[in-house]
Simulated scan of single mutants.
Amino acid sequence: KIRLFDEDKELELVGISIGGGTIEITELNTFKLKLSGENPAILVVHNDVFGIISFVSTVLAKHEINIGHMEVSRKEKGQMALMVIEVDQKIQGDVMKEIEGLENVSQVIRMVE
């Protein structure tokens, strides 16, 4: 378990060793997930509202970023939710800012570069 924080944000990661020096992230701020770290990835914390998955994927498509794997989970219907998106190439800062600027997105975290 690793806890990271700055002035206004806190992040708690839980991971496991899967052998050969490789780890897998299994939890982020109590959200269950499976993130290998083999590909660039972003985590999008958002409100569970209609269309938000489409809005985020539209931004990625506009910048020709291909999604290799995606998981979506939520605490409760209509509450906080998390998208874990693994992609084929590094996501640039301008794309991150565009996703962060979407309505109902509260945080975007780049996990692997």
Rank of each mutant, 00 (worst) to 15 (best):
V56Q: 01
E103F: 08
K97S: 15
V44Q: 01
T26E: 06
I52L: 14
M70P: 00
Q107G: 01
L4D: 07
T22Y: 06
G19E: 04
V49E: 14
E103W: 08
K34G: 00
F55S: 14
V112Y: 09
K32M: 05
I23H: 08
Q89N: 10
E64K: 15
T26I: 14
K77L: 15
S73T: 15
F5N: 07
N47P: 00
A61T: 15
V56P: 00
M83F: 10
S106W: 00
V95H: 11
V72S: 07
G21S: 12
I52Q: 11
N47W: 02
G101V: 00
E113W: 06
K34I: 13
V14L: 02
K90C: 00
M70R: 03
M70N: 05
H69K: 15
E27P: 00
N104G: 02
L28A: 13
V59D: 02
N29Q: 10
K34P: 00
S54N: 09
G37D: 06
L35G: 08
G78N: 11
I91F: 07
I67K: 07
L28V: 15
V84N: 07
Q107H: 05
M111R: 06
E24H: 10
G37K: 03
L102I: 15
I99W: 00
V49Y: 14
K77A: 12
G93I: 13
H46M: 08
S17Q: 13
Q92N: 09
E100H: 11
R110Q: 12
A81C: 03
K97P: 04
V105S: 02
K1T: 08
N47Q: 08
K62L: 14
I18K: 10
E100N: 09
K77H: 05
Q107P: 00
S54A: 14
V105P: 04
I109S: 01
F31E: 09
G68E: 14
L35E: 09
V108L: 03
G19F: 03
L82R: 04
G51Q: 08
H46C: 13
T26A: 03
T22L: 11
E76S: 04
L4K: 12
K9M: 03
L43M: 06
V49K: 11
R74I: 08
D94N: 15
I25H: 05
V95Y: 14
V49H: 12
N47D: 12
V72P: 00
L43H: 03
G15L: 14
V56F: 01
N47F: 01
G93R: 12
L33R: 02
E113L: 07
S17P: 06
V95Q: 14
I85V: 13
I16K: 09
K77E: 14
G93F: 01
H63V: 06
I23Y: 12
D94P: 03
F55P: 01
E10P: 00
I109R: 01
K62G: 10
I2P: 00
E7H: 13
S36K: 10
E64T: 13
Q107M: 12
H63W: 10
S106M: 06
I85N: 00
K1C: 01
M96G: 04
L102H: 03
V44S: 02
I42A: 02
H63G: 06
F50Q: 11
T58R: 12
S73G: 15
V108K: 08
I65S: 11
K62E: 11
G51E: 06
H46S: 13
K75T: 15
E98Q: 15
L82V: 12
L33M: 15
